[in-house]
Design a protein around this nucleic acid. Structure first.
Lengths: 211, 211
DNA sequence: TGTACATCAGTGAACGCGCGTTCACTGATGTAC
DNA sequence: TGTACATCAGTGAACGCGCGTTCACTGATGTAC
């Protein structure tokens, strides 16, 4: 019986039958699995504990409450997201437009391959007065995206120059839409990339950005 | 005691102390209130019954289960949404582009003023094998939107003509983004309209649509 | 190297809660005569 | 117009469930001596 628990234990090293040894990591992994299956709303702390092979009380050694685990998942998601975006951007080399297109792909890749993180980040509805580490991580991602889009200057059809926040918002909408919109079962991931590329190219042409 | 229940009863006529007389409508109203407060995931059938002033078992006279009530809300949302869009489109008069801009505003107005419906439509995760009436209503809305966007023909920067589904998808992303994206507390509703207008104008210019 | 002990990550039982759903029932309505 | 009755929209108590969280506890770890 004790053995069967060990067998079904998910993630992380096991130091002994009693101490898990890596429970915090195992809980985060379990949460990601559950969020992927049922969304951030369907996720439960007890089920995460079960998946990690520990009792329902064990998570409280590592997280204040259910929301704290969710916030930790979202925080890591933002951190990984920022890493991906910054790597793709690569300082804007060899030129801003090429780097920007790489970043668009990185955004969509992350959203599609790390769906649990993406859902935790954008669906979890974490309170504004929550974990500051979470907010710092989120800020970093937003800063990266807005810094990059600020390089895209252009005019609207009336000849007015377009505010940087607007460009940020439009590009973000296209990327988020490519990541989440569409009726179930529809187009495969590849066509989402094509869709996003096309949308961004058309938008940039409309802005008058060519280099 | 019986009186206090009657006082707190929400929506609908009351025919007697025993029979509610309009319970189905009252439950739909209550569901909309709760969805607005807590989202489609936080909504509970018992709480809706309480809000309508009836016992927890009463809703089962009108809905098979919790999901059926949610589906009914989403169905009505789609129906009302389609009405708004078709009214705004008005057959494309006086010209297609003017009518299209009206439709964009109607989309965003609906999403912002009928947030409960919009959430039920796009967040509720109703099963594909569910209520056919719900799917018919959803189809009608999608058909309207795609018919309208099919009128927007143009070329991508490489000179290839852009597939109609892509245009549909891009415009939809911009509208959905304007409706849902953005960090809490940020810009007021007015600037969301401005943001959407601007995005659509830039996109249409990129497409080469001018009339 | 060996032992006593402080630390603290785990246990498992228990709690109160709100939920979805079922059940036998009750009483208001409206129709047939 | 008055009465018997079928209908069916409600009641309210009960069920089993999974949840978040707390509690006194236990046992593995690693450190001081």
């Amino acid at each position: 019986m004790a053995d069967s628990r060990q067998k079904s234990r998910a993630g992380g090293l096991r130091k002994s039958g009693y101490h898990h040894g890596n429970l915090k990591e195992a809980l985060v992994s379990a949460a990601r699995v559950l969020i992927l299956e049922k969304g951030p709303h369907g996720f439960s702390l007890i089920e995460a504990a079960r998946l990690a092979g520990v009792s329902p009380a064990a998570p409280y050694r590592h997280f204040k409450d259910r929301e704290a685990l969710l916030a930790e998942v979202a925080r890591r998601g933002y951190a990984k997201f920022s890493d991906s975006l910054e790597t793709a951007w690569a300082g804007g080399e060899p030129d801003r437009l090429t780097a920007f297109r790489r970043l668009g792909h990185a955004y969509l890749d992350f959203a599609l391959t790390e769906r649990a993180y993406y859902a935790a980040m954008f669906e979890a509805e974490l309170p504004p007065d929550g974990d500051p580490a979470f907010h710092d991580a989120a800020d970093r991602a937003y800063r990266t995206l807005s810094t990059v889009t600020e390089g895209l200057k252009g005019d609207d059809p009336a000849g007015q120059s377009v505010p940087p926040e607007a460009v940020f918002f439009h590009i973000w909408s296209l990327a988020h839409g490519a990541a989440t919109l569409g009726r179930s079962g529809g187009a495969p991931a590849l066509s989402r990339h094509r869709m996003l590329d096309l949308g961004v190219e058309i938008y940039l042409k409309g802005l008058g950005v060519t280099s």
